[in-house]
Design a protein around this nucleic acid. Structure first.
Lengths: 147, 147
DNA sequence: CTAAGTGCAAAATGTTTGCATACTT
DNA sequence: AAGTATGCAAACATTTTGCACTTAG
């Protein structure tokens, strides 16, 4: 795995602490800034963005885009978490923003299919399945049983 | 289906012409502007965005968000085209950026699975599968035949 | 000591909005 | 005539970038 980062800095540490401390939670760049500031260790937004980019490149963190005009979300998926990776999918509710982690062999199978039939090597860590979660479907008029 | 649009205007027409004329192709708001201008019928960008929004709301056009800092893409899926929608997936190569449209029943099946087994209503239109395309895999040292 | 990382503020990008004018029905 | 759509330009929000300074190795 590529390691773009060369130096270990306080900023990087607290960033990682912020993200790794809340696994399975979506955090925005602004959230990270707030966290750091609250911890008495403010980090410039450029640094936050740059480090976030690094962490994503290193595969420690995932980036999610829900909508064009809302900030990107980041989630720690770090080191060890990588193991069950091939069968771990992320579902994000477009309505309430809920993040659902799905471990499912059936989903893992589509990975094989994509590879075998379409020559496409899916990166499950980077991929997010968007849609409506169970709760939001219930309260969505346009979504009775199915569409 | 809701129809937000009340009036039929030249702007709306040429917009629709632009999109419907290139089915299966991703078009940005800027592309639309360029098209209209080239046709000798320039349309203001506000109008483009507003009409695009309408068309999406009407279900004639789909909106895709590939990445935060690249413009949203629009694709005509008009009237009848909506049918194939559930089996149309978008794959994005992380290396070369290629966008691949995949029509595949096997993929459509995961949609059912997600719904039945996980209560999650996948929105294939919003979802982008990230990974490596065939060509890039070939030139990627870390990706031989693998699985 | 050198290269990498930081932070500020300014720039860039894509999208939205206010408002007067033009157009559709 | 009444209400909707348009277009400009300014506003917005998020992310990126230039550059001088600090820090890690």
């Amino acid at each position: 795995m590529n390691t773009r980062t060369k130096y270990k800095t306080k900023q990087r540490d607290i960033l990682l602490e912020c993200l790794a401390g809340t696994p399975g939670v979506h955090t925005t760049a602004a959230d990270v800034c707030a966290y750091c500031r609250a911890k008495g260790m403010p980090v410039g937004q450029s640094t936050v963005y740059r480090q976030l980019e690094n962490l994503v490149a290193e595969g420690l963190v995932n980036k999610y885009i829900i909508d064009v005009n809302s900030p990107a979300c980041f989630e720690y998926v770090g080191a060890g978490a990588r193991e069950g990776a091939d069968s771990c999918f992320h579902c994000k509710c477009e309505r309430c923003g809920a993040l659902i982690h799905l471990h499912c062999d059936e989903l893992a199978a589509i990975r094989s299919h994509l590879f075998d039939a379409h020559g496409f090597r899916l990166d499950p860590m980077r991929t997010v399945l968007y849609g409506l979660c169970e709760d939001c479907r219930a309260s969505d008029p346009a979504d009775g049983a199915e569409g």
